[in-house]
């Protein structure tokens, strides 16, 4: 490639040795939609129905939820990509889980039963993207005022706001 960046590996066969995939693939092959190893980081796309279970399968190894955020791929579908960055203190390794959610029904299962630290992160995503998390005990706005209309980090929300 001209830009000097090694091409990403997307072949599951080559990647199955990674500790995260070594856990996920024997557990449920169908839960893993795809995987990508790019710039030294592994991302695994998980089927939306299995995300909480996938997290609890990984939790013994990847014990720490580093980050939880969302990307809006408007106008393409599925629109929302919820990203979970997990960290293993034991293996000194990271893995990124992704869940794609359709724009007309952006709902994912909350992972608060696995990591209570997801609380604020999920509230932030709900507030700024409008993605809902099933089973979250207190899904209210956290950054914006309670009566705010719209979700500012969506791509169809203007940077200057509505005037």
């Amino acid at each position: 490639m001209s830009n000097g960046i090694a091409p990403a590996i997307t072949d599951l066969e080559q990647l199955k040795g990674h500790p995260a995939l070594a856990k996920l693939l024997p557990w449920k092959q169908t839960a893993v939609v795809g995987a990508k190893f790019d710039r030294g980081e592994l991302s695994v796309e998980i089927d939306r129905t299995y995300i909480r279970e996938a997290c609890s399968v990984l939790q013994p190894d990847f014990n720490f939820l580093s980050d939880l955020t969302c990307v809006d791929w408007f106008p393409s579908e599925p629109r929302f990509q919820v990203t979970y960055n997990l960290l293993s203190h034991k293996l000194k390794e990271r893995v990124r889980l992704k869940v794609m959610l359709p724009g007309d029904d952006p709902v994912a299962e909350s992972i608060m039963p696995v990591w209570p630290s997801a609380n604020f992160f999920e509230r932030e995503i709900f507030d700024l993207f409008g993605v809902r998390f099933l089973g979250h005990p207190n899904l209210r706005r956290i950054m914006m005022p309670e009566d705010w209309e719209g979700h500012p980090l969506r791509k169809d929300y203007p940077v200057e706001g509505y005037r």
Partner: peptide
């Protein structure tokens, strides 16, 4: 592409 870069800030993991 996408990357997650974390460093040890004075307060903890800044990513």
């Amino acid at each position: 592409g996408e990357v997650y870069q974390a460093i040890e800030s004075p307060r903890g993991e800044m990513g």
